[in-house]
Design a protein around this nucleic acid. Structure first.
Lengths: 329, 329
DNA sequence: GGACGCAATGTGAACGCTAACACTATGGGC
DNA sequence: GCCCATAGTGTTAGCGTTCACATTGCGTCC
């Protein structure tokens, strides 16, 4: 109202200028802009949200974790949002079970968020997606590739394939795999890629060594592997598992890469400084975030769900933890 | 209105029930609760924010980074907020310079956040604090210890002291330090603690080896240190620096801890699986987050700034990267 | 027994914005 | 010269809450 008075127009005209409506003379537009600047006026988002029923906020549901993948995704999302005029509101859940996930989604809906991003890397988290009203723009990150929801994900399968293929190409007879938790889609995708590469090459498919994402699990798996002298190549489902394995190998006197080669996944910033520098697969989290926001934006603008999905290809980063196997005897 | 009609009361009474006002009969309270449940009514936060001028949202300004410290703080904050009925809204800045920080703060104020948390680990970020209107609850994390703002921080100085003292206690003549960036308060605090421990013990104070937080920088510093055979103990300003140094030592054939001892800072989850397992200082990010929210909550409730500060003591975690120095000759 | 205080509830307005419609010029077609 | 379409602007109402004040009913005190 103050701005309107100063500019000598009605409040509605001010609103039109604010929202870039077409039917405003350039002259009045400038007058209003000047008044806005003079008064240092800033629109009240809450009032706008009340009037329109939508805010400029994107709700994110993510697990509270310092796992590199999820944390990086979240950071990239926040950065991308800032650029696009949206604000990220995070509801953090302690576990990915249905109840807490559902509660987090509800809290977001109470805030009348413009859109929702759910990072749902496991089955239980994925199920809540069904319960979300379909009139709200929704994008799922790292969800079930089988689902029809709008989905953005790193191409885990391609990553697993590339890692395994790289080892096979170096001449290894087969490749063992230390996997992430079985209920993670990420794990399963990486396993699938690994299997495909082995099958394609006609290599023997060893049993999967199931672990979680921790260095401790990698260490334990590494101790087992170190004792099996016939193993010359390992694909670890992430860098921290690889780190743990690296230490186990070290303690057992198995040199990397001379005696055994290993490839990780994630390319954490310090992977280059493991002993030895780790060959790994680098997902592009910025691309994931950008694609997510783009899909969300399309839905917000068009108001429709298009069932689109984006799969972001990762890159193999070769360093010194891989070499050709030694000729035996 | 619907709830009020169903319960046979006025909308205002519904509001009172929602806000736990004292002057409502237990009987009406139950009736309203029942109506709420039956209709599946959920309050509209935007309307509430408009009416009260405050939302239940806490704005966080943080740098977009995957550095372990800031990322962990953010995660802990999100978790703590969820428990206390607040929502965390994150504005991510690419750099900690004044302009972007200021813009991020402004965006938060537009949203009428109930309180503001600024993670301001460097000078430039700290300066924007002065420009924030004093009527909004504000807590600064990792800010300038000299300032009077409400501040929560890890006791960097104590951590640096503990790390250094631990090495001296083992019998090392002195301790070298690979520090973080000079403009970070964290770095300066750790340096100060290191110096105090040395001074107290009457040990020689070597020049600070300035680096950033990266493993690469640690590696470079490590190469220099490895060549100086008289160095037997190093305190690295974080675990990733230590990791880089560890590799440099390895490449130069300097064994850890036999030839040289090293202590890190942060206790990243995988530090236990470095080669060798790293002795380090563990900050308590959950405690930081909890203290931050508590301070913020006090301000929101009381409406006053009390100039309080909380300094969270870190813990020394001893592992195998430290031992007594070898007797020379 | 009447005045008073307080607990419980209701009423109307306000928060700052946008949606929907109403109005006023202006210009073009016949 | 009249009508109509349209661009530009104004007016009114409503979004869902809370606030400030008004009202009612009941118990207490002298």
């Amino acid at each position: 109202m103050d701005v309107a008075k100063l500019a000598g127009v009605s409040h509605q005209t001010v609103s039109r200028v604010l929202n870039d409506h077409p039917n405003v003379t350039e002259q009045t537009r400038l007058r209003v802009r000047a008044a806005i600047a003079e008064l240092g006026y800033r629109p009240n988002r809450a009032a706008r949200a009340l009037a329109t029923g939508k805010s400029q906020v994107i709700g994110v549901v993510a697990q509270n974790s310092t796992l590199y993948g999820p944390a990086s995704t979240l950071a990239a999302l926040a950065q991308a949002a800032t650029g696009s005029g949206f604000t990220i509101s995070v509801e953090s859940v302690r576990t990915l079970e249905r109840a807490p996930m559902h509660a987090a989604v509800s809290r977001h809906l109470d805030q009348r968020v413009a859109g929702l991003v759910v990072i749902a890397p496991v089955d239980s988290a994925n199920e809540v997606l069904d319960q979300i009203p379909s009139d709200i723009p929704l994008v799922c990150i790292d969800g079930d590739p089988q689902r029809s929801t709008e989905l953005v994900t790193v191409d885990q399968e391609a990553g697993g394939y590339a890692a395994t293929r790289h080892l096979l190409d170096k001449g290894h007879k087969t490749v063992w795999h230390v996997s992430g938790p079985e209920d993670w889609f990420d794990s399963r995708g990486r396993v699938a890629g690994w299997k495909r590469a082995l099958a394609e090459a006609g290599a023997e498919i060893p049993p999967v060594m199931a672990a979680d994402w921790s260095a401790a699990a990698g260490y334990h798996a590494g101790q087992v592997i170190a004792r099996m002298k016939e193993i010359t190549a390992v694909f670890a489902a992430n860098d921290h598992l690889a780190l743990g394995a690296l230490r186990a190998f070290h303690e057992h006197g198995r040199r990397v890469p001379e005696d055994i080669s290993i490839v990780g996944f994630d390319d954490v910033p310090e992977a280059e400084f493991y002993i030895p520098p780790l060959t790994t697969v680098r997902p592009d989290f910025e691309a994931v975030a950008a694609a997510t926001l783009e899909l969300l934006h399309d839905q917000i603008v068009s108001g429709t769900t298009e069932g689109q999905r984006r799969v972001i290809a990762p890159t193999l980063i070769t360093r010194q933890s891989v070499s050709a196997p030694r000729k035996r005897r």
